[in-house]
Simulated scan of single mutants.
Amino acid sequence: MFFSVIIPLYNRPQEIKELLETLTLQTYKQFEVLVIEDGSKLDASDIVNSFKDQLDLHYYVKENAGQGFARNFAFERAKGDYFVIFDSDCLIPANYFEIVNNSLTINWLDAYGGPDAAHESFTPTQKAISYAMTSPFTTGGIRGNKKAIGGQFHPRSFNMGISRAAWQKAGGFKITRLGEDIEYSIRIHSLGFKIGLIPEAKVYHKRRTNLLQFYKQIHFFGRARVNISLFFPETLKAVHFFPAAFTVSILFLIVFNIFHLQIAFIGNIIALFIVLLIFFHAWWKNKSLKIALLSVIAAFIQLTAYGLGFMQDFWKRIVLKKQISA
């Protein structure tokens, strides 16, 4: 099988260098790489072109329109039997395409997703953020489980594959951000295509380098969940309200403590239990006290940022029915 690797790029020249380096090490070589420079001010042309002797590489520059439409631009120019989408902040294990090719040969999927993990080279903060995004106590581990808590598994665009046949029938991304990958996954599934997880096809996803950037990203994800529900209302499940409920509970707990209400004692015990649960699980997973402490902070940021973003756009777009730009 011949794969077309599609990478939207926006002002991240160093990231694309690290990603392309990992692609040169692949044990399965039947793939091309399409890098779409989406109106970047920090040009990566010199870095990308330095890999042309090592990869079947195609570099395009276009006006900024967001990652979804940058991928559509690549779909129309790709030659592969299967399109594979990566975020530019990913590192790809050397056996990734060998795993995917073997898996699709044995168990065909029209679209697939893979999990993400923290690489040993990541900073403690990046490892803590990775924990917060994959922990069963925050996201429920839905990004790397075949059975999602909210229903059908939906591949995410940091590690996502689509067959040419699925693309030809479903078309490309309809929205360029605010949950464009989940909307696309739901649409492909609704057309009768088979979607699933390839558990071994992991990538190392850097995400954000500090907690403030992480907060902004997850706040955006909370807003995106509401945006997806405007296309597919039936996909909005009770589980999607959990971060908002958690955030409201934290706010109430702060008020209870300020006014020394008796109920605050019970709330504090529950909060302490949650903190210790996350701390010891993160310590066990990462074998690092520092990462465990940072993981507690990252987990609370993950839940509250998503909750606040979700509540913000739920109120504006569902209750008040306002049109909000991304």
Rank of each mutant, 00 (worst) to 15 (best):
I186Q: 09
K146R: 14
N145H: 12
A201H: 03
V100P: 05
I142W: 08
G80D: 03
K146Y: 08
A78W: 00
E183S: 08
A78C: 04
P199F: 01
K127Q: 12
D89W: 04
F122A: 05
R143K: 15
H189D: 11
E98C: 01
A201V: 02
T123S: 15
S103C: 05
I129N: 04
Y131M: 03
E200L: 12
G113W: 13
K146P: 00
Q152N: 15
A94C: 02
H154Y: 13
G179V: 08
E200P: 00
A166R: 05
A118E: 09
G171T: 01
G171Q: 04
P93K: 04
G141F: 05
L109Y: 06
A128C: 07
F122I: 04
I162C: 07
E183L: 11
G161I: 02
P124I: 11
A94E: 03
A117Q: 10
S157F: 06
A166G: 07
G171R: 12
F193K: 13
G141N: 10
F83C: 04
Y131W: 09
I149M: 10
R187Y: 06
G150D: 14
I85A: 01
N101R: 14
T134V: 01
A165L: 14
T123G: 02
A118C: 04
M160E: 06
G144K: 13
L191E: 11
A118F: 00
D116S: 07
W167M: 05
Y96T: 14
N101E: 15
A148N: 12
P124V: 08
